[in-house]
Amino acid sequence: MTNKKPAKTDNSASPQTNRAQKSPPQSSRAQNSRTSNNRVQNSRTQKSNTAASGSSLMPLLLVLIFLAGLIGAAQQHMLPYGIAGMYLTLSLLTFIAYAIDKSAAKRGKWRTKESTLHLLALMGGWPGALFAQNVLRHKSVKASFRNVFWLTVVANLAVLGYSIKTGAVDMFI
């Protein structure tokens, strides 16, 4: 009958040292997790700050030029005031929808569907959406959302341009 003894370890260290030697794998995993989470959070913050500060002037300028152009076209009787009013009203409603969604996101409450935000933008609220993305810094980093958003902008402007070119917009005058 052979008794195998476990490999002898150096017990010269105090019990506290042994406990400390056993703990680091667990604490280092937790620490690595915290460090990783901090890196992700810092990365998001940097992206958000970059998106908000680096490129915010151009989209806001685009919104102001577009809305001024609509109002100017309406004053020149090239476009019905109702179309300019529709864009202004939908932009305000869309901005409010983004603000509500941002508030819900902060509080962990029920969120507005992305498809609803896109539909509002497609219907003509894209200037308000673009303004909200830059001022509220909401939905300004997620690439898939922004790609669909810009498709709604192009689609909306294409429909507006087509209706002006074909004279379909004249029935609203």
Score class of each variant (00 low, 15 high):
S23G: 14
P25K: 11
P25S: 14
P25Y: 14
Q26G: 15
Q26C: 12
S27Y: 15
T35R: 14
S36L: 15
N37M: 12
V40C: 09
Q41H: 14
Q41G: 08
R44V: 07
R44W: 10
T45R: 15
Q46A: 15
A52V: 07
A52K: 09
S53V: 09
G54Q: 11
S55M: 14
M58P: 05
P59M: 02
L60W: 01
I65T: 07
F66D: 01
F66E: 08
L67N: 10
L67I: 09
I71Q: 08
I71W: 15
A73T: 06
Q75S: 11
Q76C: 12
Q76P: 08
M78P: 00
L79H: 02
G82N: 08
M86T: 12
L92R: 07
L92N: 05
T94R: 02
I96A: 13
I96C: 10
A99E: 08
A99K: 10
I100D: 11
K102D: 09
S103V: 11
A104I: 08
G108K: 03
W110L: 12
W110Q: 13
R111Y: 10
K113G: 12
S115G: 06
T116R: 07
H118P: 03
L119K: 03
L119D: 03
L119W: 05
L120D: 02
A121G: 05
G124S: 03
W126M: 01
P127G: 04
P127E: 05
A129W: 01
L130C: 04
Q133R: 04
Q133W: 03
R137C: 01
K139P: 02
V141D: 02
K142A: 05
K142G: 01
A143T: 06
A143D: 03
R146V: 04
V153H: 00
A155H: 05
A155S: 13
N156H: 06
N156E: 04
L157V: 04
A158D: 04
A158T: 11
V159A: 05
